[in-house]
């Protein structure tokens, strides 16, 4: 359903979502009752490297401005600017931070479950990705044999 949305146009899809109420947000713990009635977009922007929003992310935010709730999963240095624009945010530990920490518990399981919980807690009607998909971003940890020490 979410992938189809990308193809048929956001505005049309949004209108459709509102009419049909297709996304079940019952389990979306981070949405107030009011926000559950609106539309939610989730953007994965894990590889943002600058102190400001990249052009790609800014563009995505502009395109998704019709959503009542926009959540960006990104490095925490972007929180202030996202907050100033009225967006919500989440973050995941960056691969280099994980490596530097030397904590070698089951990162594969932790990150996989965390990514799933972010989706569940926000109940997005639409997902976008700026940069790599989260699973690809953590590929070295989730799949790479060279990082087996971190798994």
């Amino acid at each position: 359903m979410m992938r189809q949305l990308q193809n048929i146009g956001l505005r049309f899809a949004l209108r459709g979502l509102r009419i049909l109420g297709v996304t079940d947000k019952e389990d979306a713990l981070l949405l107030s009752q009011l926000r559950k009635r609106g539309s939610v977009a989730l953007i994965w922007a894990l590889d943002e490297t600058e102190d400001h929003l990249s052009a790609g992310l800014s563009d995505k935010l502009a395109k998704l401005s019709g959503f009542e709730t926009v959540v960006v999963v990104c490095p925490p240095r972007l929180f202030s600017v996202l907050r100033s624009q009225g967006h919500f945010f989440e973050t995941l530990p960056a691969p280099e931070d994980i490596g530097r920490s030397g904590i070698s518990s089951n990162w594969e399981l932790y990150l996989r479950r965390r990514i799933a919980r972010i989706r569940k807690n926000w109940g997005p009607d639409f997902e976008a990705v700026e940069g790599p998909e989260p699973e690809l971003y953590f590929d070295a940890i989730l799949n790479g044999p060279e990082n087996s020490g971190l798994r």
Binding site: L30, P76, R77, F79, F88, F89, E90, T91, P93, D97, I98, R100, S101, I103
Partner: peptide
């Protein structure tokens, strides 16, 4: 930025 692994929850 001070080198700690840091997680955030809303």
């Amino acid at each position: 930025s001070m080198g700690y692994l840091a997680e955030f929850r809303p």
